Amino acid sequence: MSDPVTQRPSRIVVDLSAVGDNLRAIRAHVGVPVMGIVKANAYGHGLVPVARHLEACGVDRLGVAFVEEGIALRRAGIRLPILVLGGIFGPQVADYLRHELEITVSSLDKLRQVESVAEALGQRARVHLKIDTGMERIGVHSYSCAGFIEAAAASRWCDIVGVYSHLACADDPGSPMTDRQVERFAEACAHFTRIGAPMPLRHLANSGGVLHAPGTWLDLVRPGIILYGVLPDPASQATLALRPALSLVSRVVYFKVVRAGGTVSYGATWTAATDTRIATIPVGYGDGYPRALSSRGEVLLREHRRPIAGRVCMDQFMVDLGPDGTAYNEDEVVLVGRQDGQAIRVEDIARQAGTIPYEILTGLNERIPRAYVGG
């Protein structure tokens, strides 16, 4: 008997060789070690398969958002250093230590919290100090971090592995904010030299920094979305060759003729101007495909770009083939990816949906089966 999950006509295909190629391009571009960011299910590509492939490709470290993601990687056998980038939730500190995860320490109180748990367990904690240079999310302000750094350097139970900040505007190469953040971060790091403490790994560059700001590369870079071949922002410049790793494909499951004046989908917001042919695709916002693409998105079907007709439903949507278009049940439909020399990129979908590529990728949920090639 066939597995109904593997028989679903919609699936995400992840080309792991593209992820590996992107890692090599990034490393050649920056010339420093790389922390591959695999948070949010590796930006929708699959946490464990992507992390395993990056480890096999020689990535230096991995970064995740939450301790749960780090534990999942440890349970999958990943032995690389893993930094949890998010803020600490006190009851979970012991879990960081038990699973040998590196901790973001973002305040003096958090430092004391980590020290207390580490002492109770008799296990040293590996920490990265978070400096806020303008993001105003987590971290000690750069202008008042001297005491924080001194306390961390004097800690008996914490080993400082790194010190870092996060860039707020690096996706836009024209923003002056990045230069200001670089200056603030340099001033903060100078405290290590002033107190005679060893300089830990300094890391600042996210994907935008890798693309546009060599002054942010320092000792380590933290690429996220560009590892998967997607530019972070319409203002971003493709300063290195990237290959998109993710495709989203489906199949036609229904075909009909809608007469002129007929309406399609919820709300009757789309009306056929003439007799036209409509195909139904079994993907919807319940899979993370944006409802904002209603009557504005496109798919690739039989060598043509076909527009979405009416509202995207929870589990399916319809496309307009026009009065002369043809489709058959089980024809392949490309929602993201390439077909016969044409392409729909994640960046295209984000623009049509009025959002950012990050939201498109991370919104594609586990209801869509994932298949891996090239790994």
Rank of each mutant, 00 (worst) to 15 (best):
E187L: 14
S2N: 12
L218P: 01
V127T: 11
Y358T: 13
R24P: 00
V14Y: 12
P282G: 10
V334M: 00
D324L: 12
F148W: 06
Y328S: 15
F66G: 00
A146C: 05
V346H: 03
A28K: 14
V163N: 09
V253K: 01
R351L: 14
P323K: 05
R180T: 13
E183G: 05
Q123S: 10
Y285P: 02
V182S: 07
P200W: 07
D171L: 00
A118K: 09
V32I: 07
G174F: 00
A51Q: 10
F148D: 05
A260I: 05
H128M: 04
A56W: 12
R277F: 01
K256C: 03
I226H: 08
R302V: 08
V64C: 10
A245Q: 02
A213E: 12
R370P: 10
D95K: 11
V50D: 05
A51R: 08
A153F: 04
A260E: 14
V283N: 01
V333N: 00
R8T: 06
A25Y: 04
G341P: 11
V30A: 04
P307G: 06
V182Q: 09
V13E: 13
S2T: 11
Q342L: 15
A120Q: 14
A188Y: 02
A272T: 02
H203F: 15
T276C: 05
S207A: 11
G63Q: 07
A327W: 01
A42N: 06
